[in-house]
Structures are given as C-alpha cells and as structure tokens.
Design a protein around this nucleic acid. Structure first.
Lengths: 344, 344
DNA sequence: TTGTACGCGTTATCAC
DNA sequence: GTGATAACGCGTACAA
C-alpha cells in the first residue's frame, strides 16, 4: 500500500537475529527481555525506521481501543463542550474516538452505528436521542448515554430536578409574586423533564402563583425573538406591576428575552427576575449577565468514560459478568447568581 | 473476543457451499455473481447474522478510510463549527474521523500524530498550530491545514485580507474620523495576519487617520473587560468628539466592548462604529447586534476534505504523482451589516 | 528468557 | 462466474 513495503516485526527479527515473538514482547512485555536485548531491538527500530501498525495488532488481539460517539451536532455549546471533555479523556484512558454527527436522523444514526460496529468499537457513547435505549441495549456492547432517554442502558445525566429546584428557589428568595417557567414541550422520560418537575414542586410546596409556558420558541434568532416578544406582551398583560420570576430552560432564550426587555425599557426592569440554564458563554457575555444553572460538563464526560471503561474492562475478563441493571449516574448542577437576579 | 466466535466468510462459505472468495466478491463486486447466487448469499448472511469486520479488510487491502484531525479545542465556536462540518462530510466521502484535541501542547500533539499514524490514517487535517508545517510535510501523508501557518503543506484559509478590507471599508463608508484596529500580536505567516494588512492598506490608500492596538486581551471575561475598559478610556482621551471606527479581531471581544459602552452610556454612542469578525453566535445575539465578517465555514471544511481526498486518491493509484507544490485554497468571507454600524 | 506455529478475517492473484 | 491459496502484520499458546 506504500511505495516501499513497511518494516515489520519480521524485518526486525531478521536484522537482530531474534524471532518475531521476541520483537512482539519488546512492545508488550519488555521486562521479559534482558536490558541488553532491549537495547539491541531499540536500536534496530531506529535503524530500520520501524512504524508500528495497530491495525494488525487489533486483528490479532481483538482490542481496537476505539470508542464510538454519536452526537446530534456541535453547534450547541453543550454538545461541543461535552465532546471536548470526552476527547480529552484520551490522556487518562487511551481510547481513541470515532465521532459521528447524528443530526437527528434516525436512519442515518443507525447506519453510523453499523459502521462503528464494523470497526469493532469497544464501546459507544450516545448523546443523540433518536434511537430508543431499548434498541441500543440490543447492540450488546458497552454503552453510555448522556442526557437522553436511558431506561435500558447506562447513563450519566445532570440532576435536572435539582437544577429546577435551585433556579426556582433563587427566584423564591427574591420574593417574586408570580413564577413562570418557559420550556419546550418535554417528554417525561428525558432527563431535562426534571427541570419542570423541580420548578413545579417548589411552586406547589410554597403555594406559589405559577405558570408553565410550553412553547417551541424556534431555531433562528428571529423566531425566538418573535415568540418571546409575544410572551412578554402576554405576561405584562396578565401580571402588571407584579414581580415576575422567570425560569427559562436555556441561556440562549433567556438572553433574547433580556435583550427584548432592554430594548423596550433601556434596562432590565425592576419587576423581572430571570434565571437561565446551562451556564453557556452567552450567560456571562450578555449585556446583563444571566443567573443560571450550570452543568458540570467535565464531570459528566469523565463519569461517562469511567462507566464505559468499567463495562469494557469487564468484557475483557475470561468470565465476563455483564451488568445486570443499567447504571445511572447523576451529577449535581451548580447555581450561578448574576445580574438578572442580584440587583444592586 | 466475544462470547461466541464471530461469523466469518468461512462460515458463510461453508453454509452456502461457495468459497470465501465468492463471499468477498459478494461485497466488493456483486455484479460478478449471478443474481441467483447473490440471493443465496444474502439469505445466508441473514441466517447466520453476519457482521462485517472492517479491521480485517484494512489489514488485507490497506485502506483504512480513516482521517485524523487535530484541533486545538472545541470551546471556540469557530473550531467546533469547523469540526461539525468536517464530520458531516462523511456522507459525501465516507471517511471516518479520529479526532484529537491538541490543546496547544506541541509534544502531546506529536504523540497524537504518532498514534494516528499507527492506525494507518490515510490523511490528516490540522487546525492546531503548534507544529510547523515543515515538520508536518515530513510525515509524507496527505495533509491539509486550516487557518494556520501552511508554507509546506496544502491548506484552506479564509481570505483574511479581504475580510480586513471589507470591515475597514464598511467603517470608511460611515465616514469615521479615526480608524482603530484591535488585535493580538500576530505573526505575518499565519493567515489571520491578512486582517491587519487589509486594514492597513485601506487606511493608507485613503489617507485615513488610523491606529492598530496590539494587545492580548486575555482569556477570561473579566480580563478582557478590564483591558477593553482601559482601551476605551484611552480612546476617549485621544479622540474626543471624533467618530471612531473600530475593527475588532473577533466578535467575543467586540461584544465585551459594546457591553462596556452600553453600561457607560446606556446605549451605543453615536460616535462609535464597530465591526467584529467571525459571525459567531454572539454577534447576532448581542444586545446591539454586531456587524461582522463571516467565514464560510461549510465551504472551508468542504474544500479541505476535497483537497485531502484528491491527495488520498492520488496515492492509491499504481503510479502516484504526488503534488509538486502545496495547494492553498482561499475562501472569500462575507460582510454582515448590523446595528453597530447601521444606525438609522 | 526465547522460539515455533498458528490464528485473526479479509482481499489479491492466479488459475480454472 | 468461481475457487484455492497466499498474503496483510501482529499476538499467543505451547514448547524448549
């Protein structure tokens, strides 16, 4: 496949008068050779300019050290940061990552999974949500999902319920008169539903005047702006002169909301208290920095890899004991207080 | 490596009374079999639940269809969007991607490259900038770099010079009195230097009162804020009552600048005209949407893959004719006019 | 400590 | 159209 054939263990063996086996051992179990012989082989590698071939090694020992990743996209800051942290784990675990963008196409994602299986990945990390966990479990390889429906597979998620509680409590501490939660329609089996439940529980426990607005705000800035503009109009009609505590399900939308208010009033009005979610860059870069609930993305990524590595290691044992039940790890989020709630 | 041994061509051959060769042909050259026999094999694959093994195929034919990517990080929107677009090219070209985060550690990146070479990648895309192109060229595999020093390797870059010209011309059209360019110190051999040159040329051609401020603004929001705050003070001292046209080298910094001005004056003052660079999300999400120069990231990624695929295909020919000279593609950026320059 | 011989699952070559 | 056989480069019992 190259201009000149590659240098192989055979060449080195001939050159050093050892056998292939000894050369192999030099790489995989060097202590079993004398230091002297290690030197000789080491020198031979230099002389012949040997380049290792891990593909051949895979075929021989079955260990690819590949992990597949399917992620919906990288436009969303949350996803790109998760991927960033996962890739960084190479330093700790040594697994290489084959990455696919699912883009929410179920059939495409199925093909990607087939392709990954053909490359004998040892494990799979799934962030995309088009394929039910039931189907993922049937692949019978180590799998960890992150922040998606996870009934039949192991997973790592943020404690969304706690996040909802934190956000709502913050608004409660500021003595809002009415509590609004803005979110898109969310299925109860996805982790993010916890945000809604957390909001609801705090409101009900404290007998708060509250309302949840379920609405797809749209994907373009203009759509979101238009929708939020209408929502503001409605809120001001429904709750005039009342202190409104608004928990928005993500920072991007919260920022648009704030920009609309800035534009309308020149500043963030006294009767608006706003909390976002994600601690994404926009929350600190906004004209009025946004209070928000942050996810420990580094921890999430790290736990996901740990969980996956455990499963992968188990498989390599002579008598593997696969997990009986999926393991679900939950990472507690943190609350950041910024100008949208901490006024002067 | 599995509980039960995998089904192989041998098993299928036995099951169908064909030879291994014929099974192989079924996959790689199905037309050479009769339709009838294709059916038989197809059915056997179902019956035996065959899963293909591309690792074995690689060892046999030398084609991994792997492309390595080394990227500094995914925190920067530009990088994550580039990676997004590159990964999406799987649909068109079929290459799988092994991705590493370089994080600006030269030695680490060298190791990553070695690891990638061991997995017999067919090509390499480099966005990180710690390793000189001279050294990359010595790897003797198809390489394309994106937006970095590229003297000895093929590359795809934005036409930064044109970007600088566009941004400065926009300010010029608005009759600014003084033209400021804010940038970090930049080496002349990196593509981004073109922004500076473009700014300079327009200023000199038109005899404009201009100034370049070279300054590392910092990495945290607070640092940037602090530094820009000082710069504003200086500008207002040096150019009182003059219309200031400011070309900031990226949208993030431009946004901080605008937030500082908003905070100080309640609105964007009449005598400030600002243009950013990148068309990153913040430029449209900012309280005052920012005029900016956008890079055609989809085109950049696509051209990079095309350039790489050409080189990789050339290598597979019987008598490869490697490129004599590196090819440098340049993508023209686009100008977006928003509120920081278009004041009714 | 070192070597022999075979296996990993596919493709390539050359016959028929 | 189809088949036999030798690669591809390394790991690993088993033997010495």
């Amino acid at each position: 496949m190259k201009q000149k054939k590659n240098v192989t263990f055979d060449d080195i063996a001939r050159y050093t008068n050892f056998s292939k086996t000894t050369i192999s051992r030099y790489f995989n179990n060097p202590d079993s050779l004398t230091l002297e012989n290690q030197e000789i082989i080491s020198k031979a590698l230099e002389d012949l300019n040997y380049k290792e071939n891990k593909v051949a090694r895979i075929l021989a020992n079955g260990k690819t050290e590949f992990v597949g990743i399917i992620i919906p996209n990288l436009r969303n800051h949350y996803y790109s940061e998760i991927l960033n942290q996962i890739l960084l784990s190479y330093e700790e675990f040594g697994y290489k990552f084959l990455v696919f963008i699912g883009d929410e196409h179920q059939e495409t994602e199925r093909q990607y999974i087939q392709e990954l299986m053909a490359y004998k990945i040892e494990g799979l990390i799934i962030l995309s949500f088009t394929i039910p966990s039931r189907e993922l479990a049937d692949l019978h390889i180590p799998i960890v999902t992150i922040e998606r429906e996870d009934k039949y597979v192991s997973s790592v998620n943020t404690d969304n319920y706690m996040g909802g509680v934190q956000a709502t409590s913050l608004l409660l501490n500021h003595n809002c008169d009415v509590f609004i939660h803005l979110n898109s329609p969310t299925a109860p089996d996805v982790p993010a539903y916890g945000r809604i439940q957390g909001f609801l529980d705090i409101c009900q426990e404290n007998n708060l005047n509250h309302k949840i607005i379920y609405k797809m705000l749209g994907t373009t800035y203009e759509q979101i702006r238009q929708n939020l503009s209408e929502i503001i109009a409605q809120l001001e009609q429904d709750y005039p002169n009342q202190r409104k505590g608004i928990f928005v399900s993500n920072d991007t939308d919260a920022n648009v909301l704030i920009n609309l208010l800035l534009q309308k009033y020149g500043k963030l009005p006294e009767d608006y208290y706003i909390v976002g979610f994600d601690d994404s860059p926009i929350s600190s870069e906004a004209a009025v920095p946004i209070s928000t609930v942050g996810q420990h993305i580094d921890q999430i990524a790290h736990e996901a890899m740990k969980l996956l590595v455990e499963q992968m290691n188990e498989r390599k044992k002579r008598r593997p004991m696969p997990q009986e039940q999926p393991i679900h790890k939950v990472i507690t989020p943190y609350l950041i207080r910024r100008a949208t709630t901490e006024k002067d």
